[in-house]
């Protein structure tokens, strides 16, 4: 990462940021402002589009469903990702590469191919259903249900949990664990009281990334889920492309953005920091 420390006069190195800022400002900032502007009536100040969200009987329900799905995905990826990332810090370089490749696989496949792959796996009498039936659960329906969507989203989002965790866990000095053991702590207590608190930054960073990304998923619920169990992105799509209700869609988008930012702010205060997210890129980029 850059280490320049500008005083009151900016360091010339900041000039390098101009293209990025211009690009983000142009393709993200301006449209974002426009859709917010439309949502409050394009100058004729009104909050009707916002009040409609709370009274139409479907938005809040879908918002809650989206939050719930994103929370489940976050927990699932955390439970799967933590031991996985831990293992990555404990094996040799070869196996570590194998583990990295395995977790990054979803990145390298086209979103459509991946989702259609899941579709085939999740069908009635498909591979997943037959596998689950081996354990005595024969009536689990995955295609067209929130469960199926959660499963597919968890796989796709796993890297976003594993990478920050790996970055955080890799930086933990294992001698602290030895010290705890030598002072008489049982292994599990040493893990819980020494190791886990040190990893909290990674946990929070991974959870923030996974949760916010899960909130915006569109293709997976649209393909694998059911219109009966829409998530918020589908509702947004419908408002824009079917009802041509740009103001209403802007209001919904703004609401989702605010809810997400509040959650991120709260999680940020809980421990860890946004810096950990940046640190993933930083560590992988410079140190290794």
């Amino acid at each position: 990462m850059m280490t320049s420390r500008p005083r009151w006069l900016p360091h010339p190195g900041w000039l390098l940021l101009i293209p990025a800022v211009a690009l983000l400002g142009g393709i993200l900032g301006v449209p974002l402002w426009q859709s917010f502007w439309r949502s409050i009536g394009s100058g004729d100040w009104t909050l009707e589009h916002y009040s409609a969200l709370f009274t139409d009987g479907v938005t809040l329900k879908v918002l809650a469903r989206t939050g719930q799905a994103a929370a489940v995905v976050t927990i699932v990826t955390l439970l799967l990702g933590y031991p996985y990332a831990y293992l990555m810090t404990r094996v040799g370089p070869l196996w570590r590469s194998v583990l990295v490749v395995m977790v990054l696989m979803p990145f390298w496949t086209s979103a459509l191919a991946r989702n259609f792959g899941w579709l085939i796996l999740l069908y009635d009498n498909g591979l997943v259903q037959r596998f689950i039936a081996l354990f005595g659960f024969d009536d689990v329906v995955l295609y067209g249900t929130a469960q199926g969507v959660t499963l597919a989203m968890s796989q796709v989002l796993l890297p976003f949990m594993v990478l920050p965790l790996f970055s955080a866990l890799g930086g933990i000095d294992r001698r602290l664990l030895l010290a705890a053991r030598s002072l008489g702590s049982p292994p599990l207590v040493a893990f819980w009281k020494v190791y886990f608190p040190l990893s909290r930054g990674g946990v929070v960073a991974g959870c923030i990334l996974t949760f916010t990304l899960a909130c915006g998923f569109y293709v997976t619920p649209a393909l694998i889920g059911s219109p009966r169990e829409s998530l918020i992105a589908q509702l947004l799509g419908q408002r824009t492309t079917q009802l041509l209700d740009f103001a209403g869609a802007g209001a919904l988008g703004t609401l989702v953005l605010v809810v997400t930012l509040v959650l991120v702010w709260w999680a940020n205060r809980m421990g860890g920091s946004m810096a950990t997210i940046g640190a993933v890129a930083g560590q992988t980029g410079t140190r290794r």
Partner: peptide
């Protein structure tokens, strides 16, 4: 369309 579409969507997502 708009009114019925909203109504239908609400029904679908109950």
């Amino acid at each position: 369309w708009n009114q019925i579409s909203d109504e239908f969507n609400r029904w679908l997502n109950v």
